[in-house]
Design a protein around this nucleic acid. Structure first.
Lengths: 213, 213
DNA sequence: GCACCAACCAAACGATCGTTTGTTTGGTAG
DNA sequence: CTACCAAACAAACGATCGTTTGGTTGGTGC
């Protein structure tokens, strides 16, 4: 069990220091989980990566699954945060669609390891943690559905699956050192999805994107 | 090491019988690997599913990884087979695109467990097996690229990624008991991808599909 | 300078892992 | 009947797993 700062205050409380260490371990864990997978990564691997002994990890986490949980939950909140923020905005359906795609790819680009773990290893969770993440995933899909419904009213279900497929699969191939930045990827995907592969000849059709309404 | 039939012939050779048992084990393994993941499934799980003791599995396979390998290789051949067959066919670029999408979704629908293992667990392989599967995956993507290049010449790289994303992600959500059959899914995806989400209002635009040229 | 405590080390725990070894079984060929 | 062999059993192997336990350390507040 983690406890609050015992002192009345201070510039750098022990809790804050501990949180920094915790984040460092989480970052290492995210990288290893995303590369080798959750079950293929041992606590000894994590300890070695963090520069301490296996048992010492339990000063920061109750167990291995909690490490996975915190990575997955953090990524889920990043994805959901972008979409929730979109709800309050006033913009055309297409513009919302474009912003949603941008937000999604932005999370993938900004936290690639976390996104990969979230989309690839979340099934390794169990019990209430699994159902909680499952609910967050469902919520995220519903928010996408709300947007797609206004863009493609006739075939919204498959249209949503198509858009989400494109967005979700980016975590597989996205390369931070590649020639394409997140915004370019998102915008071109939006163009291709909205206008179709056939009409992509004209280059950039509807790039009259103004982020401010 | 597996050996050939020792007798000169016969209606049911021991080898043929053994192969049937082997396929049964592979099917069980594919289901468990696709549900829990490779590393989360033990040889004892497989043995229990097949109704024998853990050590008996080694009468059919040299080890756990070979079981994964055979599942993955079989699925890879199914995916590649459909695309290779397409190369010889004479059809318009769009028609080829539609057939490719149909072939892909058909494999997912026909061998859902195998497809999931192939697309989700192939990284658990090691050594030469890993590189072999990696080559097959690359080959598959190249064949898609060849098709996409004729459909969307200007932005073929991202267009290919978009189409492959849609196709690949189906293994995540496809439900054999769902309302949509494989052909419907593939055709609607083709419509949406070719014409764009915006123009999907008219229902079915280019459904003049004749499988024979 | 004394009490306190988060963070860590050192060492081990039982459980489970993939795999091996020696033996038994059931069916088939000659 | 006998020799043979794939297929399976029964039992254990060493390795590694996630985790626990008890002790050590270094900094901080009073």
């Amino acid at each position: 069990m983690r406890r609050e700062t015992t002192t009345a205050g201070g510039v750098k409380t022990p809790t804050a220091v501990g949180a920094a260490r915790k984040d460092q371990i989480l970052q290492i864990a995210a990288e290893l989980f995303s590369r080798r997978g959750y079950h293929a990564t041992s606590m000894r691997d994590l300890a070695e990566g963090a520069g301490l002994l296996p048992g010492s990890l339990y000063a920061h986490f109750t167990g291995k699954e909690e490490i996975l949980y915190q990575i997955v939950l953090d990524a889920a909140r990043q994805f959901l945060g972008g979409m929730e923020a979109l709800r309050a905005q006033r913009a055309s359906p297409e513009e919302k669609f474009r912003r949603a795609m941008r937000a999604h790819v932005a999370v993938v680009a900004h936290d690639l390891e976390g996104a990969r773990v979230f989309l690839h290893e979340w099934k390794a969770l169990g019990g209430s943690r699994l159902t909680e993440i499952r609910d967050l995933r469902r919520r995220y899909e519903e928010l996408w559905d709300e947007i797609i419904r206004h863009v493609a009213p006739s075939d919204s279900k498959l249209a949503r699956l198509l858009a989400l497929s494109a967005a979700n699969w980016t975590y597989v191939w996205y390369d931070p050192n590649g020639p394409l930045g997140p915004e370019e990827i998102a915008d071109r995907f939006s163009d291709l999805l909205l206008d179709g592969l056939r009409t992509s000849v004209k280059g950039k059709v509807s790039v009259e994107r103004r982020v401010r309404s």
